[in-house]
């Protein structure tokens, strides 16, 4: 499985990171180098092995479905690069 330029461009778009055309090729080479090294995982027999999804052997806790937090709009938006009336402001999305 080797990444070409077009795949890198697609992945970069999924990750929302702009990569200029001239950087796609070198990035593909770097990523292929890492993925080539990762291929060694294929040597491990993982038949009937469950994927590890919890580090400590524990179940996630449950709590009552009720409001336990909130009521501080100013704190929430305090660090926003752009805000208006307690809302985050973003470029227009609907024409």
């Amino acid at each position: 499985m080797s990444l070409d330029k077009a795949t890198v461009a697609k992945v970069a778009n999924l990750a929302r990171i702009k990569i200029v055309e001239k950087d796609l090729e070198p990035m593909a080479a770097e990523l292929n180098n890492i993925l080539g090294w990762v291929e060694q995982l294929g040597e491990v027999d993982t038949e009937n092995v469950e994927p590890m999804t919890s580090v400590a052997e524990m179940r996630l806790r449950w709590r009552a479905d009720e409001v336990t937090d909130g009521g501080y709009v100013e704190d929430v938006v305090a660090n926003a690069p752009s805000r208006e009336d307690g809302f985050f402001a973003v470029p227009k999305v609907i024409e």
Binding site: M1, G42, T46, P51, M52
Partner: peptide, 17 residues
């Protein structure tokens, strides 16, 4: 690619643990 990379890595992780 999820199965080939991520799921495989999580299974290898089980074996390491």
């Amino acid at each position: 690619y999820y199965d080939a990379y991520y799921l495989k890595a999580q299974k290898v992780r089980t074996r390491i643990a």
